[in-house]
């Protein structure tokens, strides 16, 4: 069954795009034909995270009739396909809605899962992205403003008939000043799908233009996202254990030429 899943957050800066990009790669790794559509125009950094910036043909060109959708699909890490949006979906909706629907239909012909990276907030672009999807994954940090905005997003999505799969809690810090998983689940009234720890490796990977699950597949973040991907498609995932050797033993091994 073809699935169109929007990844939305409400509040900006919670790591939604990072989750979308890595989840896309994870699903692709599991053998699903996955395509990520970047609808976050204001903060269009999906391509940066995937190391695919500066693509000339975008969804905008397709909907303007200047290019075919096939020309706007780019191959990303792990076989993931990416379509950069290039322009506000709302702007397109007004003028070229038929073509947008056609483009999505064409995309879905060769795609198992279409992930839409929705813009933050509840402006028209965000609503257009939400309305285009059948299912939604909410992303939030365990902080009050982020959860408050996620709740608004959830309410709007419900009203638009979008099925909320659950919430991903990003940048979990085990800090008592933040809301607990149980509290977040109670407030949002949706299941928690994954808890991603606060991990400086994520920023480092982004700086290299590489998704963390490619750059550091043993990290807790990578394992959590892979598990999320596996759960979404009903697959089993065996987490990759991190290397438990200490720095000194690694150094010694290095010096002795054993590595």
């Amino acid at each position: 069954m073809k699935r169109v899943i929007v990844v939305a957050s409400g509040k900006g800066g919670v790591g939604k795009t990072t989750i979308t990009a890595n989840l896309g790669v994870a699903l692709s790794t599991f053998g699903e034909e996955t395509l990520v559509l970047d609808a976050d125009v204001a903060m269009a950094n999906l391509e940066l995270i995937l190391g695919m910036e500066g693509k000339s043909i975008t969804l905008h060109d397709v909907l303007s009739g200047d290019a075919s959708i096939e020309d706007a699909i780019y191959e990303g890490p792990g076989g993931l396909k990416v379509v950069p949006a290039g322009i506000s979906l709302e702007g397109l909706r007004k003028i070229k809605l038929d073509r947008l629907e056609e483009a999505l239909e064409t995309i879905l012909q060769d795609t198992d899962i279409l992930l839409i990276d929705a813009p933050a907030g509840l402006e028209k672009d965000a609503l257009a992205s939400i309305a285009a999807a059948q299912e939604m994954i909410l992303v939030t940090t365990p902080e009050v403003p982020s959860i408050s905005d996620a709740l608004k997003t959830k309410i709007i999505a419900n009203k638009l008939g979008v099925d909320i799969i659950g919430v991903v809690i990003n940048r979990e810090l085990h800090d008592k000043t933040f809301l607990t998983i149980e509290e977040i689940e109670t407030i949002l009234e949706v299941p928690v799908l994954a808890v991603i720890p606060d991990d400086p490796e994520v920023s480092r990977a982004s700086a290299f233009g590489e998704p963390i699950i490619v750059k550091n597949p043993k990290s807790p973040t990578s394992n959590a996202i892979m598990q999320l991907g596996a759960d979404l498609i009903g697959e089993k995932y065996q987490p990759i254990e991190p290397d438990k050797k200490g720095v000194i033993s690694k150094l010694v091994e290095g010096l002795l030429g054993r590595r």
Binding site: T180, I181, P191, V192, A194, V195, N223, L228, D231
Partner: peptide
């Protein structure tokens, strides 16, 4: 689906009970 997947999640699940 629907349950946290790391240690913190399982700790919280215990607390929930």
């Amino acid at each position: 689906m629907g349950s946290p997947k790391n240690d913190s999640a399982s700790n919280d699940a215990e607390t929930k009970v």
